[in-house]
Simulated assay, not measured.
Amino acid sequence: MDHYQPSTSTEAALHDYKTGLGIFSKKMPELARHYNQFTEECFKEGSLSQKEKQLIALGISIATQDEYCMIYHTKGCVDQGATEEEILEVAGVSAAFGGGAAMSQSVTLLQESIKELNKYKQ
């Protein structure tokens, strides 16, 4: 039984994602291994920095309304040193493609995640 008590909604979502991924990995180890290798390769430093790749992934997450990925890649952006201004610029560009739905996620879930993740940096 899982007794973990997250202190924020962002932390809870990240925990749920990691727990679900762990269960999936046990049930489908080869598929999970290949998927993880592929995504690790995609996010390696290259012509684009890891920060730039996280910002791109965040923008795609917002435009496609993938809430877990929005939280996960907001964390990735913060971890890679992206500023709140950079993250919100990504949100604006995403809203240009994703319309009102993307903007509603940006002014709620995204801003909440930024606030909660920045608490840990201080």
Rank of each mutant, 00 (worst) to 15 (best):
59 G>T: 06
106 S>Y: 11
117 L>R: 02
79 D>A: 12
101 A>M: 01
98 G>C: 00
108 T>F: 02
115 K>T: 07
112 E>N: 11
47 S>H: 08
93 V>Q: 04
96 A>I: 00
66 D>I: 02
51 K>T: 02
81 G>D: 04
77 C>A: 08
60 I>V: 13
63 A>N: 05
61 S>G: 15
100 G>T: 07
46 G>A: 09
109 L>D: 01
98 G>L: 00
44 K>D: 02
104 S>W: 06
114 I>H: 14
86 E>H: 02
107 V>F: 13
75 K>M: 07
64 T>L: 07
64 T>Y: 09
75 K>A: 12
64 T>H: 06
52 E>Q: 12
94 S>L: 01
86 E>G: 04
41 E>S: 12
74 T>H: 11
104 S>N: 09
117 L>E: 03
40 E>T: 08
98 G>R: 00
72 Y>R: 14
72 Y>D: 06
73 H>V: 03
95 A>T: 04
55 L>P: 12
90 V>Y: 14
68 Y>G: 10
60 I>H: 13
117 L>I: 01
60 I>M: 10
66 D>W: 08
114 I>P: 11
95 A>E: 04
94 S>Q: 08
63 A>S: 12
112 E>M: 15
54 Q>V: 03
39 T>W: 10
61 S>C: 04
53 K>R: 15
81 G>N: 00
117 L>A: 05
66 D>M: 15
105 Q>G: 13
101 A>T: 03
115 K>R: 15
59 G>D: 00
73 H>D: 00
73 H>N: 10
74 T>W: 10
102 A>E: 02
61 S>W: 05
49 S>Q: 05
114 I>F: 12
55 L>Y: 12
63 A>V: 08
58 L>P: 07
